[in-house]
């Protein structure tokens, strides 16, 4: 059996193709075959390779035996009590119905009493009690947040009034600074006003040379 260098992939139509686990494609084919995930020509290639090649058979056997060793891992059979604890927790969180679970966790579930779940049965993350025991920090946090918002708004209003006052002061300062010019301007207007010929009857007497 030969495998040409340019032909590294599994080719079902080539009965003489040589396979090795160093070829990822072939390795995937064998593991898929062991998992029952291949059929037809691919399955035939894997089956024949394992049967005919001692090396491939050995590796495939080791892969399968390692797989079988997983059976040694303990498997937890979830008791009904755990199931009911989870159910009670979910229903309590959703508020969809009062649930009571006896502290002895005997598996009896009633839906006509207020919620009572043994605290030790609930993940710390979901313990409502821990939130109820320390409500003061929430109040403090809310007070700080609202205080901050109100302070910010008050500061904004104060700055607005300060700005309008500053504008008015600037206008007054402008008038004071330019009072001389304003007075001169008024004098010119006054001269213009009295320089009309009708007031004197003799135009030449007031005419500008």
């Amino acid at each position: 059996m030969n495998k040409s260098p340019e032909n590294d992939t599994v080719n079902p139509s080539d009965p003489d193709q040589d396979f090795s686990f160093s070829d990822p494609g072939f390795s995937e084919l064998v593991t898929s075959y062991l998992d029952g995930e291949v059929s037809g020509a691919d399955a035939e290639i894997a089956r024949r390779s394992i049967k005919e090649s001692p090396e491939i058979r050995l590796v495939a056997q080791d892969i399968q035996r390692a797989w079988d060793l997983l059976d040694f891992l303990p498997v937890t059979v979830s008791p009904e009590a755990k199931t009911l604890e989870t159910l009670a927790l979910v229903l309590q969180e959703s508020g969809s119905g009062p649930v009571v679970l006896d502290d002895s966790v005997n598996g009896e579930l009633s839906t006509n009493l207020p919620p009572q779940i043994p605290e030790r049965s609930i993940s710390s993350k979901f313990r409502v009690g821990s939130r109820v025991k320390n409500p003061w920090w929430k109040v403090a946090l809310i007070a700080v947040v609202f205080g901050g918002i109100l302070g910010f708004l008050a500061l904004g209003v104060l700055r607005f009034f300060e700005a309008s006052q500053t504008e008015k002061i600037k206008q007054v300062i402008g008038v004071v600074e330019n009072i001389q010019f304003l007075r001169d301007a008024n004098d010119i207007d006054f001269l213009k006003a009295i320089a009309v010929p009708e007031l004197f009857g003799q135009p030449d007497s007031v005419a500008v040379p």
Partner: peptide
């Protein structure tokens, strides 16, 4: 998935 399972099984072995 095929590649993932293959790598996992070979590594496990």
């Amino acid at each position: 998935v095929k590649s993932l399972v293959n790598r996992a099984r070979v590594r496990l072995k």
